[in-house]
């Protein structure tokens, strides 16, 4: 066991881990932050996406020890302290961008990374950026719509609410 220390959602945390402990497992099992989900074992579904030093990464494909000293942001840190949803979360609710909710944490975190680098993405920008986030429920329609809406674009012309 080795001690690892990092900042998660602005709070300093540390814990003992093995070499093989994944960041996703550190968050879920050591810190009890179960909002980050694991949906595959080949680094494709994206349910586990968090930000490490501001960059979106798949936390199931990064060793916890690689995040030593890093600043990690997860779905649990996205809403305001009073619980109010941020613009992306709110757009997902407003536009029914989630159904079972399992892929949602990764979708929200990927959307946040996208909007940081591309504040007004086109439909195809959004679809391409979500290549590493699989949703089985929504057919992506309302996810794409929600992300475009979160960027301040008028999505009222997009078919069917």
């Amino acid at each position: 066991m080795t001690q690892v220390s990092m900042t998660v959602n602005g709070k300093a945390v540390s814990g003992d881990v093995e070499g093989r402990t994944l960041l996703s497992s550190f968050l879920r099992d050591k810190l009890g932050m179960t909002g980050t989900h694991v949906g595959c074992d080949t680094s494709q579904c994206g349910a586990c996406v968090v930000h490490v030093d501001g960059a979106a990464v798949k936390s199931c494909t990064m060793l916890a020890l690689e995040a030593e000293g890093a600043s990690v942001d997860t779905i649990e840190g996205q809403a305001a302290a009073d619980g109010s949803l941020n613009a992306i979360q709110q757009a997902f609710q407003d536009h029914h961008g989630l159904q079972c909710g399992f892929c949602t944490p990764g979708m929200v975190m990927s959307a946040a990374a996208l909007l940081k680098e591309n504040p007004k993405p086109s439909e195809s920008d959004v679809r391409e950026y979500l290549e590493g986030n699989i949703c089985r429920c929504t057919g992506y329609h309302n996810i794409v719509k929600a992300i475009m809406a979160a960027s301040g674009q008028d999505v009222s012309a997009i078919a069917a609410e």
């Binding site: 595959c40 439909e123 290549e131 699989i134 089985r136 078919a159």
Partner: peptide, 20 residues
Amino acid sequence: ASYMDYAMPRADDVPFYTVD
């Protein structure tokens, strides 16, 4: 036997749909 060979639809495989 994994998402490496079982092709799940992604966001860029589908368009917006019109539903009535």
